[in-house]
Amino acid sequence: MTIDPFGDARVEGVSIRSLPKVSLHDHLDGGLRPDTIVELAEEAGVDLPETDPARLASWFARQSDSGTLEKYLETFAVTTAVMQTRAALTRVAKEFVEDLAEDGVIYGEVRWAPEQHLAGGLTLEEAVEAVQEGIEQGEDAADDDGRSIRVGQLLTAMRQNDRSAEIARLAVAFRDEGVVGFDLAGPEDGHPASAHEAAFALLGESFLPVTVHAGEGAGPASIRSALLDGRALRLGHGVRIAEDLEIVGREGEEVRVRFGDLARWVRDREIPLELAPSSNLQTGATAAWGKTLEDHPFDLLYQLGFAVTVNTDNRLMSRTSLTRELALLVHTFDYGLDDLEAFQLNAAAGAFLPVEEREELIELIGEGFAA
């Protein structure tokens, strides 16, 4: 099925794009507009595989559909190359927020790795300030357009490097200036959260929320390390928690499942899974179950009571939007408005916000779906 990432779809007669949505897992360097990449590349003297925006968008989609996380990550060399100045970071962040607002997102968390944006001479602090400036410009522009949105930064450390403690200190320093939490990303297999003990100790002592990419490029052992060593409050993707479930029988449409200790802990503690259906297929995270969305364990996890959330991961690479991801799930699993609302409520409950603000967000979602 083809669904236009820039179009709309309807469920029970209601526009999905018009529904209030929460985006928890969305990378800044994976959400650039193709025409912006072309313009910034020309200014910076960066060579591109395609200089026509439409063909460049197609190139990203083809390159990202590799079946492995490592190949998928290679495309980011292009986007980060044009994000090395204050002006570029501010522009990209502003447009990022505008595009979220256009898609009906009312709260979002944007994750990005400051350590990857220093080639143009910026300091880590200057890079964070540049992105925050863009976020605030995007929020103001959306407000002027009649859309209300709030976006917080998740500062990401790259797990294959040795700067995680430094990025953790940076996140704590900017916690009152737009940063809402910390993320660990990069090649997952062979780079467990346990290798970043100093960073997570600092974050724990500072009570700064943490999400860790786990259960995407590696299995349950990686998830266990994210929870125990990384003190993660959410799991970045986490789709491979389904490997800790054993289907022991079926009765009609009902599936009987035996839980492993890890899966039961994640389910019972309502630890949010930041699932990204299209991306999960592209990176091979769901290869153990099949190659189509019908094979994705999303519905199994949802029916079993896991705190599933729906995300885009990288809108450029997956040529998608949150509206499109929800539309694909509706088409594949015959979900209705109540299901889509449940996904947004799960995301709102897992947002790295004070409880009062999460409750306000939950009220906005309820009001928006009721309307």
Results as ranks from 00 to 15, higher is better:
152 G>F: 02
371 A>S: 11
78 V>R: 04
62 R>Q: 11
204 G>A: 12
16 I>W: 03
159 R>K: 09
91 R>E: 11
49 P>W: 12
92 V>N: 10
133 E>Y: 03
198 A>Q: 14
7 G>H: 09
207 F>S: 13
104 G>K: 03
290 G>N: 04
79 T>F: 02
133 E>F: 02
8 D>P: 11
13 G>R: 10
361 L>F: 08
314 N>E: 06
286 T>C: 05
261 D>L: 01
307 A>Y: 00
309 T>S: 04
334 D>T: 13
35 D>Y: 10
184 L>F: 08
3 I>K: 15
248 V>W: 10
148 S>D: 13
14 V>Q: 15
162 D>H: 13
165 A>M: 11
237 H>A: 00
299 D>G: 03
220 P>E: 05
310 V>A: 08
163 R>G: 07
35 D>I: 08
279 S>F: 03
86 R>D: 14
19 L>F: 08
319 R>M: 08
207 F>T: 11
337 L>D: 04
140 D>N: 09
120 G>I: 13
303 Q>Y: 02
236 G>Q: 04
332 T>L: 09
140 D>Q: 10
109 E>A: 02
121 G>R: 05
362 I>N: 00
302 Y>D: 12
369 F>L: 06
305 G>Q: 03
118 L>V: 05
83 M>G: 02
200 F>Y: 07
367 E>K: 07
85 T>H: 13
110 V>L: 14
177 E>I: 06
36 T>P: 00
227 L>H: 07
68 T>V: 08
177 E>D: 13
355 V>H: 11
309 T>H: 03
136 E>S: 14
110 V>Y: 08
14 V>T: 15
160 Q>C: 09
176 D>G: 11
162 D>W: 10
254 E>Y: 10
265 W>G: 00
51 T>P: 01
223 I>G: 01
328 L>Y: 03
257 V>E: 02
68 T>F: 06
349 A>D: 15
104 G>H: 06
89 L>F: 02
128 V>P: 03
247 I>W: 01
4 D>Y: 00
168 A>C: 04
141 A>I: 03
11 V>A: 07
259 F>L: 13
205 E>G: 15
262 L>S: 12
216 E>T: 02
276 A>I: 11
136 E>L: 15
12 E>G: 12
213 H>Y: 09
102 E>Y: 09
71 K>G: 05
205 E>Y: 10
356 E>F: 15
11 V>L: 11
195 A>D: 15
232 A>G: 07
92 V>A: 15
43 E>V: 01
310 V>S: 05
166 E>D: 05
187 P>E: 06
13 G>C: 05
23 S>Q: 15
141 A>C: 10
81 A>C: 07
181 G>I: 01
310 V>N: 12
175 R>D: 08
70 E>C: 01
193 A>M: 01
38 V>C: 08
79 T>E: 02
97 V>W: 05
26 D>E: 13
352 F>M: 15
210 V>S: 07
62 R>W: 10
206 S>Q: 14
187 P>F: 09
292 T>E: 09
17 R>P: 04
315 R>Y: 13
274 E>I: 02
88 A>V: 08
157 A>T: 08
297 P>N: 00
138 G>D: 03
135 I>E: 06
28 L>E: 05
212 V>K: 01
236 G>S: 07
144 D>K: 12
144 D>F: 12
339 D>I: 06
252 G>V: 05
312 T>P: 07
146 G>M: 01
132 Q>C: 15
308 V>Y: 01
30 G>I: 11
